[in-house]
């Protein structure tokens, strides 16, 4: 039986009727058309589906949409400014070539957001540990680490 949920997604209030078994990832992609959130493994391993739920990075393939009723959700689409200026983490991935095919990138960016909000000056080891719930099949991770370091520096300098 469908149930009504109301949540904030990227600053906008959304109200929908959803089946309880609808996953948050599928709600974002299929109901709200926010396809920046990717589904890679659908088994809680790869992190491509990572979004921010009340300020914490979570794997949205392992959360039911009904569990997010009343919550504040941010997806990749919520990061850039309205005028198109990229978030420093997005800029870092651009500048440091932190992607190849780009499939893992939304999840990498959302995990980096969680990491840098809680630890603004991570060491390389802390970056690698912080992103260990996100798998990338292309890059070998090296440039992803550089991208996060770029973002940390930029966010700390406030520019």
């Amino acid at each position: 039986m469908a149930q009504e949920i109301t949540l904030t997604v990227n600053g906008a209030t959304r109200t929908n009727q959803v089946e309880p078994r609808l996953l948050l990832a599928d709600y974002l992609r299929s109901v709200l058309d926010l396809t920046g959130t990717h589904v890679g493994c659908d088994t809680s391993n790869c992190g491509a589906c990572t979004v921010s739920l009340n300020g914490d990075a979570v794997k949205s393939c392992t959360v039911f949409a009904v569990q997010a009723d009343g919550a504040d959700v941010t997806t990749l689409e919520g990061l850039a400014s309205d005028d198109g200026t990229l978030h420093p983490i997005q800029e870092g991935f651009w500048e440091k070539h932190g992607l190849q095919c780009g499939f893992c990138t939304p999840g990498m960016i959302m995990s980096s957001l969680d990491l840098l909000s809680k630890n603004p000056n991570p060491t390389e080891a802390e970056i690698r540990e912080g992103l260990s719930g996100n798998l990338c099949r292309c890059t070998g991770y090296h440039n992803i680490v550089l991208a996060v370091q770029f973002a940390a520096e930029k966010m700390n300098s406030g520019s």
Binding site: S44, A57, K59, D114, G133
Partner: peptide, 9 residues
């Protein structure tokens, strides 16, 4: 335990 996202849930 696991990774950051899983520790958050």
């Amino acid at each position: 335990v696991a990774d950051n996202q899983i520790r958050n849930r």
